[in-house]
Design a protein around this nucleic acid. Structure first.
Lengths: 345, 345
DNA sequence: CTACTTTTTTGATCGTGATCAATGAGGGCA
DNA sequence: TGCCCTCATTGATCACGATCAAAAAAGTAG
């Protein structure tokens, strides 16, 4: 059915030449082909719209021009994962960078590491971006393929042999909490999605800020709300009893922050009058919410660009300048934190 | 470098069998292999972690298990395209559906149709999703590949031979405008991104609503703001002179609607007191904006799921129930349109 | 015109998996 | 024991492109 692709052999037959000659023209080895034939072959290639069969690259070269972008989701996020602006931006930037470099992007979102490994091997990809992998899975992927892998937001932080890009979550947590403390807010809760990964690092930043102000860490002030939990919004109501103008909440994502604010607002509280909230990411949610969200800004585009550049350099046999790139974050102050006025706190 | 993949031939050599026997076990043609050997081969496959080379499928079958998801962008959207919740949701749903069906997703965003065709051919994809293609490019892609293609939001509407999914933009435009008219708002502007494609259809819906209310169409009330234009926000100020409590603006996207609202708000106008605004899409912007945006809701997830199902059925040789799926849209009333009260309009 | 060099073209092989036709081995029956 | 039949296994071939060594053609010099 449909049009059949022209092969080198067919072009060669039509011109009464050998496939080798045609192949030589394709690979610009024109020194080995007479000018007359170069012209003839080139015209035929255009006329019959010859397209190389990318998928067969793995036979003659070691790999295809596919780059695997693997997103590990330990929770079953379901199909809506890219409506999260973070993932959307990341894959948009990666696709762009790879395409411009002549590579193609195989996108694969999986919870089962084994399936990711199989995909990487079976497609003979040239390299991979591993998003939110654990160090163990990163290493296994790399060992199995023997091809470059660059991690983005590796779960359990940086290890010697990995190449990866992340953000300074310790500083992010610290800045968020320090800012509230400086406004005289000293009863600060933290709302996280899990106790692991980047949330754990942000928690350390939270603790560091408290320590600097000689406030003991009270683990009852750490709340975990699982994104999968359908009763999540219901459970958030436990936060209501903390409403107090000396209280603040540090949330590990803008999404969570918005939900927390809505919880308070629905119960008649005002933000930041009755309680302050700081988010994390600085995505579209933060700019549109009311009140507009004070949050920790991370440059997702830069993160993805850095990862793409690292991987492309590794694939072409080079060595990236750094093994580990940790991008800075910064606080963006908007309207969700009560500001200390001159005449009192 | 790295681990080398095990091949069928190698497994066969290790077990002192022929490659054919191993291949037969892999393809479940166990009727042709003795039970003892089936067991031996299966164990070896597991032990040496045999993974078939997906990319070579095109040699023996007609195509690979890749599905091309092609997004045509006549404007150079740049790398941030998926931060648009629409595209993000679409590709998330597609990736999920294809993966569950055993296919892999090749994502390719391009402005040059020729490069899309080359990609489709070179990778021997099993089928393609063509997002915002023109009918001409859709047909060309289909003809060149001879494989199933399903369109999403085909630019110039539906034609006989295409398979595609779209939304009822005529009704969307109509509902948006009709709603404002019923609130006594009779001076209605329309803000679009272009004069083509779905915007053109929505314009017809706009005109239809006016006609029903015996209001003549005034083309000076149609404003085009190109998303690429950096002076876009500046240019929007021409709208300000329409501020009037009998005036309303129908915007072809929530993003545009938000920008329009901000333009008015920055100049001290209130929405909907001084002017009403209706958006289109009902994405995250609409729910978070202030005032919350009254808008036309489209179910992006359903759209993508319908397209995925159609394509998978076509690939497996079946026939989808419909050639053209047009999903309904509906108005979601929130707070950006002035509501007519009992005692006056 | 021969001998030799250079240019151009070709044949053969590899790498991987699917498949068909053909061979080998074992079992049953006369 | 010999013959046939069936089940199990194998060899050969194809699909496609890259590449190297070998062959053919063309050109140069004596």
């Amino acid at each position: 059915m449909g049009q059949v692709m022209v092969t080198i052999k067919e072009i060669a037959e039509m011109l009464d030449l050998s496939p080798t000659t045609v192949a030589n023209v394709i690979h610009r080895k024109t020194s080995k082909v007479s000018k007359a034939n170069v012209k003839r072959v080139e015209e035929a290639l255009k006329a019959y719209n010859y397209v190389p069969r990318f998928s067969l690259d793995c036979l003659t070269k070691g790999s295809t021009r596919l780059i695997g972008v693997f997103i590990y989701t330990d929770k079953n996020f379901g199909p809506g994962i890219f409506s999260d602006p973070f993932y959307g931006m990341v894959i948009g930037v990666l696709e762009y960078a790879f395409r411009k470099a002549g590579y193609y992007m195989l996108l694969y979102v999986e919870e089962d590491p084994e399936l990711i490994f199989q995909t990487a091997l079976g497609w003979n990809i040239a390299g991979a971006i591993a998003i939110t992998f654990s160090n163990r899975d990163y290493s296994k992927l790399k060992t199995l393929m023997g091809k470059p892998v660059v991690g983005i937001d590796t779960h359990d932080g940086v290890e010697m042999e990995t190449y990866d890009v992340c953000i300074d979550d310790l500083d992010g947590g610290y800045q968020a909490v320090e800012y509230m403390l400086r406004q005289g807010i000293d009863n600060i809760l933290m709302v996280a999605q899990s106790k692991k990964c980047s949330d754990a690092v942000r928690l350390r930043g939270y603790q560091k800020a408290l320590r600097r102000h000689n406030i003991p860490y009270d683990k009852s002030k750490l709340f975990i709300f699982d994104d999968r939990d359908p009763k999540k919004t219901e459970k958030m109501k436990v936060l209501l009893r903390y409403a107090d103008n000396n209280a603040g909440i540090f949330c590990v994502s803008d999404r969570l922050a918005i939900q927390v604010m809505e919880t308070f607002q629905k119960s008649g509280f005002q933000i930041p009058k009755d309680i302050s909230v700081v988010g994390y990411d600085d995505n579209i949610y933060a700019r549109l919410s009311s009140p507009r969200l004070t949050t920790i800004h991370q440059d997702v585009q830069e993160k993805a660009e850095a990862a793409a550049e690292m991987l492309l350099r590794l694939i072409s046999g080079g060595t990236p300048e750094y093994r580990h790139v940790m991008l800075p974050v910064n606080l963006v102050t908007r309207d969700s934190v009560k500001i200390m006025t001159i005449d009192g706190e």
